[in-house]
Design a protein around this nucleic acid. Sequence first.
DNA 1: GTAGTGGTTGACGCCGCGTCAACCGCAAGT
DNA 2: ACTTGCGGTTGACGCGGCGTCAACCACTAC
Lengths: 252, 252
Amino acid sequence: MRTWSTPEVVKLTGVTSRTLRHYDAIGLLQPAATGHGGMRHYREAELLRLQRILLLKRLDLPLGTIAEILEGGLAEAEALKRHLAELREERDRLARLTATVEATIRQLEGDQTMTPETWFDGLDAAKHAEWEAEARRRWGDAAVDASDAAVRAMSPEERRAIPTKFDELHRRLAEVREAGEPADSAAAQAVVADHYEFIERLWGTTPTAQAYRGLGALYTDDPAFTATYDAVATGLAAYLREGMDAYADANL
Amino acid sequence: MRTWSTPEVVKLTGVTSRTLRHYDAIGLLQPAATGHGGMRHYREAELLRLQRILLLKRLDLPLGTIAEILEGGLAEAEALKRHLAELREERDRLARLTATVEATIRQLEGDQTMTPETWFDGLDAAKHAEWEAEARRRWGDAAVDASDAAVRAMSPEERRAIPTKFDELHRRLAEVREAGEPADSAAAQAVVADHYEFIERLWGTTPTAQAYRGLGALYTDDPAFTATYDAVATGLAAYLREGMDAYADANL
DNA sequence: GTAGTGGTTGACGCCGCGTCAACCGCAAGT
DNA sequence: ACTTGCGGTTGACGCGGCGTCAACCACTAC
């Protein structure tokens, strides 16, 4: 029954000696014996255990979970399933993120002139070009030009406050929703009323019921907007749209 | 020119007070003034700066990079491009990882009987089912059954040593390659010779030149194998295949 | 002797805060 | 006048998985 010293294990497996000592320290992989000034000696059982550790580690499982599995306290398939769910979430998050970053870069490199819609939402600055075209289709050139003029008339400070204001509205709305209030409740409608007023200021005109509903639809239909709202709270876009529809029903 | 206290900023932006103090500590966002027992007071300039910080943070930029951008020492587009490359890499890595984990789960839940190919490579245990079908197509039922028998005849210890042995071979090969040796050099061929011997033991028969070349082709053609080798060193699969071809030319 | 090799054990650093713990100033209630 | 409570402050530790010193020891070779 031969044994392996630390550097031998290093050569065999490719892990660093520091890693081996770390695993020893946290109890994940302890040498079969130590002697002669603390030198670690591993036997076949430990090597096999290390193999399994490395295998699971390549799946990005945390060491704690790996330990539980190896101790038999946790079923491997069970742990992997949970892990898989996390991986998928993270993968999807990164996919959305890359898209957002790409769009942001396009915006930074594209038209230098900051048109009003750029201010609509700090996060969606990047989406401006596509969004303006969409806006002209939905509301017509006159509406977009009016909004343009209204925002241009603002002071730089006012303009820069726009994303902040949107953020505030979104967070207030998310709070109301988390409290369990339906979108047509008084609490939600109060926030939507502020939203309507703010949109009114941005557009430079009083949105018609149809236009306001259309904006709500845009929030749920355009992935860029949906993503923006989902960043605050998942499903917030749909909730806001509901609230806007209810507001239009009741007040416009 | 009004100012905002810490809790007011918290309400406005949704960040925690701890985060604000952290940003103060690292110099990322310092309050315009402090007074009255250390209370922080922010003005509009700081709120706007915070907005930009949060925007960039949502893109997963590290705080250090955000600081550089805000100080003007780093072009935003430039930083984002670099960041994007990292994001893409990570996204792709996670995509491959989810696939691997999914396959591993399938394997764990599927056939309980561990057939020999399962041991071929620890990481590819999951790929067993697909791989066996592939093997039968490539080498025929007789060859696969022979290998099956050979591995079944091994002791459990021997079987469990198989992935370890593969790992060792792969690492040795990677070292040779990093030293700049071509695949048909003596150094590389020595490793390939060991590889051949080991395959011989696993298969239970002496692989013909054609069969051995076929195995090499599998390494580069099957994404699962390629990924396994790339985990050790990128392009290792191709290098090994080259080496195997050269070995077959010279010795088989 | 001295130098070199190959091992050991701390301990700090990374990143972005969350989460205590301990303290302080001010207002309201007893 | 004392306590209580609120709202703020400042440390300091913890997280994960090691990398990277620094300091030390045992043995061999010169």
